[in-house]
């Protein structure tokens, strides 16, 4: 699924990331527990959907080689988080939808779960 399709489906906003809207996301993982995220082995073209918005969310994705993060429930993405994401070439998207609604919509439109 293309990033621009994801943004459209969840009425989201591209917060960090330049000309990436045509990039493909293969599957997604939804979690607020970074310890769980750190156990994922295959993170190629994986998008993290999370309601946990702090610098360690970005750090965890940096260490796990996760390039795309979708923050739910309109969580505030701080300047520090944006800077860190830009440094690492990451894409940050924000939506006001809940974690459940976001995951449900994307799953129903064909975005695959990781497991």
């Amino acid at each position: 699924m293309k990033i621009k399709e994801i943004i459209s489906l969840v009425e989201g906003t591209l917060v960090v990331g330049g000309d990436v809207e045509n990039e493909e996301v293969t599957n997604a993982f939804a979690s607020d527990l970074m310890s769980d995220v750190l156990t994922i082995k295959d993170t190629d073209s994986l998008m993290l959907i999370t309601g946990l918005a702090n610098t360690q969310t970005i750090r965890t994705c940096e260490m796990s080689d996760i390039q795309i993060v979708l923050f739910v429930r309109g969580k505030n993405i701080t300047d520090e988080m944006k800077e860190l994401a830009e440094e690492n070439g990451m894409v940050l998207i924000q939506t006001n939808y809940t974690l459940f609604r976001t995951s449900g919509i994307l799953y129903a439109h064909g975005l695959s779960p990781l497991y």
Binding site: D32, L33, M34, S35, V37, L38, T39, L52, N54, Q56
Partner: peptide, 15 residues
């Protein structure tokens, strides 16, 4: 609150 502390760290370091 930072998304850690679930008792998964050391086992994941080992893995």
């Amino acid at each position: 609150e930072m998304g850690f502390g679930a008792g998964m760290g050391l086992p994941n370091i080992k893995a």
